[in-house]
Write a protein that binds this DNA or RNA. Structure first.
Lengths: 228, 228
DNA sequence: TATAAAAGTTAGACTTACCTAACAAATGTT
DNA sequence: AACATTTGTTAGGTAAGTCTAACTTTTATA
């Protein structure tokens, strides 16, 4: 059984591995900063986690989760994101309030609690921030995101990310009242110039260019919580 | 802010004060036993709690919560019982599984969480064991229990306790499928001999004697969770 | 490539919550 | 009232997780 603190180190390591996609190793200072402790403290804990075979680590080297460590970290992340979903959907917390409380709730030890909570929430695959919730076996749901331009006529989809991050594009999105989670229905595709007629949320139908449709990532799954 | 451990000491003290109704003081050994630690450890913590003015305590004397300590202990008990209710009602935990997990959940720090949870549960006044849930201001709901014999015709009530604890009576209750939480409707009162016609849950109407009606405590509030 | 800067480690100390063993006070029993 | 038993305290020690200060290794750059 891991301590509250050990769990936090594993979780930090997992998060850092998501951040630095290509190379999932982390450094001592990086870890310490992430956890709000001094590097010396992180070194101590890393030795302990190595003893328990949760991380691969040697002096002055980079840190990497072992398979066992990764599974434990995923279990914590699973709890964190399920609780965030609970707070947001059932207790009416706002998007930005959920994290702090979930930081505490993620350490509650009870396999039954997690699984029942997941069931109660209807087996959500993504949390209120759009991040994937690990399954009980550690699998991470992948958001099958495609470009809006690839959606067939009549299909309903949901915005998940932007491909173009330029200010002009983001401002245009704001004007259209499009954020992560906004539902969009493709009404008609014009083959001539690649433009399309779409319905944003409950707004009136409107036309968007091919350039626009190729700048927006959407998903056909309706499993992202809409931002309030 | 209190530590996890300090909170447990306060809660133990509150529980002991409920147990020894007439005299709410506790002894060091009693406390230590309740918390699963050695008496020496309890002495240490008691000194610390005294420093924080949460308990009244002097060497070799009895221990008593101060008003401040009592309020904090009630806040923890409130969380504990709300979480028990949540686990039982929403996550389908059984009557005897809720306690262990609630022991952990009661330490989560978030005023908003507690109040939202209470609202989500519909402001329950009693937990799945029939114990009162302290209000946000520390008030303890009192179960207005009266004898079944005092209930007027046509009224619906709910079993909360037994006055007679003899085996024959308890066996009779079992035969009638009456447990804590069972709803009973008084259909007719017979003045002649004090007997009455009642409906137990969804069963057929049946007659019970005055002796029976004077042995069962019920409440007119419909706020006790029914045992499954 | 020599050296300065950055990154990481070690040693020693503190706090919290726990322990054991020895002692002191209060209580109960004849 | 004296003594035995129960109850509670003190002193000294341990483990976890943190710190600071001094040191070492790696890396980046002039």
């Amino acid at each position: 059984m891991l301590s509250y603190t050990e769990e936090n180190y594993l979780k930090a390591l997992l998060k850092l591995s998501f951040q630095n996609e290509d190379k999932p190793e982390a450094g001592t200072n990086e870890m310490a900063a992430h956890l709000g402790v001094k590097p010396a403290t992180a070194t101590d804990m890393l030795k302990k986690l190595k003893e328990k075979e949760l991380v691969n680590y040697k002096k002055y080297g980079k840190i990497l989760l072992t398979e066992s460590g990764k599974q434990q970290a995923l279990a914590i992340l699973r709890k964190h994101r399920l609780w965030e979903t609970f707070l947001y959907e059932k207790l009416d917390f706002s998007w930005d309030e959920v994290h702090e409380v979930a930081e505490q709730l993620e350490h509650i030890q009870s396999a039954k609690l997690v699984d029942k909570l997941e069931e109660f929430l209807g087996f959500p695959e993504f949390d209120p921030h759009g991040d994937p919730i690990p399954k009980a076996n550690g699998d991470l749901p992948v958001l099958e995101k495609i470009l809006l331009s690839e959606v067939k006529e009549g299909e309903l989809c949901q915005v998940v990310a932007v491909k173009d991050t330029s200010t002009v594009f983001l401002q245009y999105l704001e004007k259209l009242q499009i954020t992560i989670g906004t539902p969009i229905k493709v009404l008609e595709r014009i083959d001539f110039d690649g433009s399309m007629s779409i319905q944003i949320s409950d707004q009136e139908a409107r036309n968007v260019s091919m350039k626009f449709a190729e700048s927006l990532f959407i998903t056909l799954h309706q499993n992202i919580c809409q931002q309030k």
